[in-house]
Simulated scan of single mutants.
Amino acid sequence: MIIERVTGHTYGAEIRERIIEPLHLRETYVPRGTAVPGPHPRGYAQPGEGAPLVDVTRVSPSVGGAAGSMISSGTDVNRFLAALLRGELLRPAQLREMMTVRPTGNADGRAYGLGLESRPLPGGGVYWGHTGDFLGYETMAGATVDGRQATVMVNLGPGSSDAQSDDLGAALRTALSSRGPWGREIRR
């Protein structure tokens, strides 16, 4: 892995030193073993249409290496995204590069950069974030440059319908919109 070759330290050690500790992320872990530490929601998969749900909670995301080996709470994900967009983690030129996006071709207006997506918000503006899924879980997180953050998660995957992902996206857009779910402007 590039991080380990450049720094001489493990991926987990670098994440802890550069992100987890400086941002005081108290519910974020890079697992050192195969067990998921601490209290957490159970994850389920549905191996086929109409099949019973299978509890896959014991499968550790560490099997995904750096692509999935972090565990975090919604609060910590929000804190991370806010710090990233405020420029607390990267130099300005690096953050600009991350936020230089190209359209993905999806009808929803999504654009993708270097590990960061932008998506339009109802009523104007965009939010920045990322989605992720692992056996038993699906997560969407986003933040706006003016300081709003939200993270939504479900504990079923695979086996969920496209409607589940659509509903997650709708919940996130509503939470980040400058207008509440009833169309009234939210003053912060």
Rank of each mutant, 00 (worst) to 15 (best):
G132K: 08
W128F: 00
G48S: 08
R148C: 11
G68T: 03
A51W: 03
N78W: 06
P52Y: 10
A45I: 12
T151K: 05
V152S: 15
L156I: 06
G105W: 14
R86N: 12
P47N: 12
M140Q: 14
M98R: 14
G87S: 08
S73K: 10
P103F: 12
G147R: 03
S118A: 00
D76Y: 12
E88A: 11
P47E: 02
L95Q: 10
Y112N: 02
L90W: 09
R58C: 02
V54E: 13
L53H: 00
R58V: 14
L114D: 15
L116C: 09
G125K: 01
W128G: 00
L53T: 01
L89D: 07
R119D: 10
A67I: 06
A45R: 04
R79H: 14
A111R: 07
I71H: 07
V154R: 15
W128D: 11
N106I: 05
M140N: 14
G132L: 08
L89K: 04
V59C: 05
G124K: 12
L135E: 14
W128A: 02
E117G: 07
P61K: 08
V126S: 04
G48K: 12
G115C: 13
L114M: 02
G129W: 06
L95H: 01
T151W: 01
Y127D: 00
G147M: 05
R79I: 15
G123L: 06
G64L: 13
V154N: 10
P120S: 01
V63Y: 03
T100F: 02
L90K: 06
M98P: 15
R58Q: 14
A66M: 04
T139R: 06
P52A: 03
G105Q: 00
V154E: 12
